[in-house]
Amino acid sequence: MAIIDLSKREVHCKIVYYGPGRCGKTTNLLYIYNAMNSEHRGKMITIDTKGDRTLFFDLLPLNLGKIRGFNIRIQLYTVPGQVMYAATRKLVLKGVDGLVFVADPLKVRKERNIESLADLGRNLEEYDLKFDEMPLVLQYNKRDLVDTPVPTMSVDELTEDLNKELKIEAFEAIAVKGTGVFETLKEISKQTVHHVATKHLLNKQNP
């Protein structure tokens, strides 16, 4: 549910990072928070349990500067990935304008990725939204683990599992080091702003 403020010439959008528990959603936001100048980002809010697990969501507000004279303000959210937090996940998705699905390459998480993507699809449906009508990108995180003895999945295997039908843009990432984090953010922001703008602004400005 984007907000277009014509008086202040601002567009506000909500982008949600989705994916199974421990895939690296919070790490993406933390990296962005630490890398961005405080003029361009607000406070990061985290509601978590005593451990470092996200209980409700993380929120990071960003100011991405101007596009076509409009100031672009984006709120990044993450959802709690654990199966038991289904209800809070659905709440965080309310009013979502764009999505990043973060996949975990650990072999043992293969089914978790697939199940989480299906869960996302079901939740979107409940809000009358569809995958193919939403700005959505994939991130294959933790690529650093490929060079370790930990059993991981190849990009081909992840593509087969998650992107065979969607055929959306996918980024390889190492969120702990920041690799691929801004590439992912840039692409989803671009798609989201474009989506909101074509719905409301461009049509009216150049009929």
């Binding site: 549910m1 907000i3 277009i4 008086s7 809000y127 409301h200």
Partner: peptide
């Protein structure tokens, strides 16, 4: 769920 388009008239 709708997007909201805010004009200064609405906001005022």
């Amino acid at each position: 769920m709708p997007d909201y388009i805010l004009t200064s008239e609405i906001l005022n």
